[in-house]
Amino acid sequence: MKNYTQAPLPFQGQKRKFLKHFKEALKEFSPNATYVDLFGGSGLLSHTVKNFYPNATVIYNDFDNYTVRIENIDKTNVLLADIRAICSKNSNRKDKEKLSEGICHEIIERISHEQGFIDWVTISSSLLFSMNYVTNFDQLKKETFYNRVRLNDYNAEGYLEGVNRTKKDYRDLFADYRNNTDVVFLVDPPYLSTDTTTYNRNDYWKLSDYLNVLKTIEDTSYFYFTSNKSQITELCEWMQQHGYCRSPFDGAKTITVGTQLTYNAAYNDIMIYRNIF
């Protein structure tokens, strides 16, 4: 099974920076457990578990339809090849350059003739400034284009091999496995106040959503991902210290990874895990 160190197609919030720490922490968990990826996203955590523990049962909640994008990867590569050829006509050949109005018009014209499924996240990540995505044609037409098209095709061969795909509300999936033995929950919800445009929902994750997610890590074995921007861990610690309730993070281990956005803006990604078995 090929080992992927990042998701094969662009996805907002994939945990590639945590993979080294995640694999090290997995050594404290059973190689034969059932791992339930409640917020499957790009499937990178599910892939990593299955690659690390081939005998484990891995349940991947593909709520964002990432596998549909993988199934259409050849179609996406054909479209990107045409866009790449158009970009090569630009007078300034520097990588990630701003494209001329004429080139932008030609790209829009090419995309307008595309039939059937279009992977808007992958296409927009190839044309927009770093970490910017759109989810439909009308949005794309309003944007400024840059030549960010990769030189080689995308490939997802064997990426989710052996992983069991499902698509459910995370609460229903949690209920399916809550009372099973030797279960580990992978809990990676969208970060608090994060734009969820590219996720399969059209609103924002608010504090109440986050507090509901914490029910999945009460008295369970888990990996939970958040950031210091959400301050959810501080809230839980304060509640426990002042006698309101026991923190779901009590007795867990914490790994922090710094993320630099710009020269003067940074935040910390956080992985918290606990094995009760």
Rank of each mutant, 00 (worst) to 15 (best):
E234Q: 13
D188Y: 02
E234W: 04
R246Q: 14
Q240A: 02
I217K: 00
Y224R: 00
S247M: 04
D203N: 15
K206G: 09
N200S: 07
Q241V: 06
K206L: 15
D188S: 13
F225C: 08
Y244V: 11
Y204G: 12
Y244G: 03
Y244F: 12
Y224S: 06
D203I: 12
H242I: 05
S221F: 02
W238R: 15
Q231C: 15
M239C: 12
D209P: 02
W205Y: 03
Q231K: 15
E237L: 06
P248S: 02
V187P: 09
N228V: 06
V213L: 03
S208W: 07
G243E: 01
V213C: 10
L214T: 14
E234C: 03
T216A: 07
S230Q: 15
A252I: 02
Y191P: 05
T226A: 05
C236M: 10
F223K: 11
K206C: 06
D188G: 05
S221V: 02
L211C: 11
P248G: 05
D219S: 08
T254P: 02
D219N: 13
A252D: 02
D188M: 03
L207Y: 15
L192P: 14
C245K: 14
T198I: 07
I232W: 01
L214E: 11
T254G: 04
R246P: 06
W205L: 05
L211Y: 09
F185W: 09
S221Y: 01
N202F: 08
K229E: 14
S208C: 07
N200W: 10
K206I: 14
W238M: 14
Y204M: 12
L192I: 13
I232K: 01
N212Y: 08
K215C: 07
G243A: 02
F185G: 05
W238A: 10
W238E: 13
Q241W: 01
T198S: 08
S221L: 00
N202W: 10
S221Q: 01
P189L: 10
T194D: 13
S221P: 04
Y199H: 10
Y191F: 13
N212M: 11
Q240C: 04
E237H: 11
L214K: 08
L207C: 12
C245Y: 07
L192Y: 15
D188A: 04
W205D: 10
N202Q: 15
D195W: 02
L214W: 03
Y191G: 09
F249H: 08
E234Y: 05
S221I: 01
T198K: 07
C245W: 07
W238L: 14
K229W: 06
S221C: 00
C245F: 03
N228Y: 06
E234K: 04
I217G: 01
N200R: 14
Y199M: 11
I217H: 00
D195R: 13
K229A: 13
P190N: 09
Y222P: 03
T197P: 12
W238H: 13
G251I: 00
D219I: 00
T216K: 00
L207K: 14
A252Y: 02
L207D: 15
S230H: 15
D219M: 01
K215L: 10
Y222T: 02
